[in-house]
Amino acid sequence: MREVVRVENLSFSYAGGVKVLDSVSFSIYEGEFLGIIGPNGAGKTTLIKLMLGLLEGFEGKIYLFGKELKKFKEWSRVGYVPQRVAIDRFHPVSVGELLTSVVGHERRLKDLVDFLHMEEMLSRRFTELSGGQQQLVLLGMALSSEPQLLILDEPTAGLDIHSQEHIMELLRELSQNTGKSVVMVSHNLGALFSNADRILAIDRTLRYEGSVQEAESILAHLFGLHRE
């Protein structure tokens, strides 16, 4: 399988602070669904922000599609769904405007709207949507450029069980049927263990990297975590 991301000896500290990540190394492969887990403050969000070039001043190397992060320019190959979008509740932007701001072609917009069943949401303000609908829109925006790598930061956090299942079903479909690599940070171990191909457990440093089955059995020893 082709390597999509390679992280080598990655260390990072916020200005004047302690090390958030220490010598983390791993790879992500084409078509793989990778789950990243770890306790609060373990550095999960920091790790994906570093991979996305959103934070600077790290030690080590990050490669995206074979190119070093500093030289990487093909950002349309990467889709990102952030942990939460902290916009003002009065923000007037409509779902249609959000999607057209990121989608290049009319045809692609229609495909995306059909795939995510967003027809009825298009004329509504983003802030009027439920949490699950908002996550769908964010996913739609991330998928707009037909990325080969999709990175999601806790996409099911705060959603009801039906919305969680819907999002996970879509991600599984994307990973299995379209060959996209999906990287998902989550505390939702049940969802990750049911859908991911591989698990990465971090707590400032890499604590575990391997199969879901093995992860389930040893996580209790690592973090005292249990599947819900």
């Binding site: 996305l52 320019k73 990467v78 952030p82 923000h91 932007v93 990121v102 983003f126």
Partner: peptide, 18 residues
Amino acid sequence: FKSLLLMSFNEEMAKVRG
């Protein structure tokens, strides 16, 4: 317009889009 719209929505998403 499109860039400003996206930046007012989420700067990180805008950055990742180049």
